[in-house]
Structure formats: structure tokens, C-alpha cells
Amino acid sequence: MTGHWEHFEHVADIGIRGIGPTPADAFSQAGLALTALITDPAKVQPRRGVQVKLEEQDLDYLFFDWINAIVYQMSTHHLLFTRFEVKIDGSRLQADLWGEPIDLQRHAPAVEVKGATFTELSVRQEGDQWIAQCVVDV
């Protein structure tokens, strides 16, 4: 999981951005950026894994689906994730997400993410880096 992540400003909500040498790395990093909205990813232990499989031709929409898939897994399993092992093959994405159940005391979750939005949604290459980003609704 090489690369890094960051947040960017939006008046009502907030943007997540993953940056890495491949689209898969950028997607992984964006996953961390998502967790970081809720809690410090370093406080989350990779104790439980879940798998996500997606298929979508358009890379922007694939990223939208990816972020929503993480939101769905967090919401239905009450998990927070700290490691995202993503493989992208053409229009197919397969990922293993590692994390642990939300501990209200230890994680003190700041917000609940409702879903990804199309605002500032883009997956693009700049130089030798891939950038995957969107604003999320919180």
C-alpha cells in the first residue's frame, strides 16, 4: 500500500483523496482517508477481514462504488478498516479490507459517512502518480 492520502475542503462536507503509483494504490489510500474522517487509522487493528468485489467499466464510477462499498461494510458489520489490499484488473476490482469492530471508547468515532458523492469525483494520472478522489456526505 504505497502512496499517501489527504483530505480536502468542502463547505458542508469533506473530500477524500488517495495518491499512489497505481489506481489500486490510490484506491487503497483513499480508503485510509475515509477511515481517517472517523478516527485515527493507527488506532484500528487489522484483526478481521472482509472481501469486496466490484465491476464497473468507468474508473470514476468504480471509485464511487468502491467508497460506497467500504461505507456499506463499515455500516453493516460495525467495523473500521485500516488496511485495504486492492487489485484492479480492467473493470474488475477485488479487495480485502482489514479492520476491527468499532470501539466507542477507543475509536471515539467523529462522524458517520453516508456515502460517496459525484462532487470532485475523479480518478486521474498526474505524472507518475494516480489520484482518486471525491467529496463524501457526512
Binding site: 468542502h10 463547505v11 458542508a12 469533506i14 462522524v111
Partner: peptide
């Protein structure tokens, strides 16, 4: 209505 981002 918000006038400031969450991050700020």
C-alpha cells in the same frame, strides 16, 4: 446552514 467546513 454551514458557513465553515468540518476540517476548518
Amino acid at each position: 446552514g454551514r458557513s465553515m467546513s468540518r476540517r476548518r
